[in-house]
């Protein structure tokens, strides 16, 4: 099967989309097969636009997108059947019930698994006879995820699927993703602005800011390569600028985010970088830069 042999589940190469007030600018990144990639950025950074481009919902002016090595444009139905998609908010009709959804999807997906679907319905405690309009937001998201997982999906693409949910439900959903990814053929690409979700489950992080990719790296390497140096304000000048990602100053002193921690440690004995987090790294990159 195509999906098994490809190194990358998704390859986004240099895509550009221009709107009057926003440009997705030469966006490139790969989602390695068998991994979870978190796609993170502030609201309006271009996450949904990128996901729409991947799903062939909008045209790109430049660049190309490949899913399992095939152009995403007019992707073959057999490959589409292996992709589960969940958008922010529900896209199912308010009048439908769980049974209706099962009935409809079994005629849409050639690989639909009613047993798997109802297992998820049971597991996620979704009411079978209630209309969708009576579902809470959490229940709607859980149903959308149950659908995405009930047709032998090998790739999940989720756009802000956990946003606006309470921590308990978010945790429940993240556990389902972790269970899904145990199969090494499975891949998840999910956008979010909740960094703790990324820290909890992602193997890779792609950070988009103002329509541009800031970085797309392994989460562990990212954390390993960055560090925070707490110091006095006057000491900031002593730090080699090549290593500085961003600086934050307060009345009590300064904090400097540095990259290439190993190299920095070899060259500077004076400062000892402390471990940092994805959230800190992103905050420094998106805001700290201006204050360097």
């Amino acid at each position: 099967m195509v999906a098994n042999t490809q190194k990358n589940a998704i390859e986004v190469d240099n895509i550009t989309i221009r709107y009057d007030d926003f440009t997705l600018d030469k966006v490139s990144f790969n989602v390695p097969s068998g991994s979870i990639m978190g796609f993170v950025g502030e609201n309006g950074a271009g996450k949904t636009t990128t996901i729409k481009a991947i799903l062939d919902l909008i045209r790109t002016e430049e660049g190309s997108i490949r899913i399992w090595g095939k152009p995403s444009k007019n992707l073959h139905k057999d490959l589409k059947a292996m992709i589960g998609v969940v958008f922010d908010g529900s896209n199912l009709h308010e009048n439908l019930t769980v049974d209706n959804v099962n009935f409809i999807m079994s005629d849409i997906y050639p690989n639909w698994r009613p047993k798997v679907f109802y297992n998820y319905v049971e597991k996620l405690k979704l009411p079978k006879n209630k209309k969708f309009k009576e579902f809470s937001r959490g229940m709607k998201m859980k149903l959308s995820i149950a659908i995405a997982l009930s047709h032998d999906s090998k790739l999940l693409i989720l756009d802000e699927a956990t946003s606006g949910l309470d921590p308990m439900i978010r945790d429940e959903i993240l556990d389902i993703f972790m269970e899904f990814i145990q199969d090494e053929e499975h891949t998840i690409f999910f956008s979010t602005h909740i960094i703790s979700d990324i820290e909890k489950i992602a193997d890779y992080v792609t950070f988009i800011h103002d329509g541009k990719i800031v970085f797309s790296e392994s989460k562990d390497e990212l954390i390993y390569n960055h560090g925070i140096i707490p110091c006095r304000k006057e000491d900031v000048q002593k730090i080699d600028k090549r290593f500085i990602v961003g600086t934050r100053q307060s009345n009590y002193g300064a904090e400097v985010m540095i990259r290439n921690v190993d190299e920095f440690k070899r060259k500077n004995r004076e400062f000892i970088p402390e471990r940092t987090s994805i959230e800190e790294i992103m905050l420094y990159i998106s805001r700290g830069k201006e204050s360097v």
């Binding site: 799903l55 919902l57 958008f87 529900s90 896209n91 199912l92 009709h93 849409i108």
Partner: peptide
Amino acid sequence: TYDEMANWDIYALTLPIS
């Protein structure tokens, strides 16, 4: 109307249909 209210088309296009 039901399709529009649910924003169905955007989802339908991700299903294995053209």
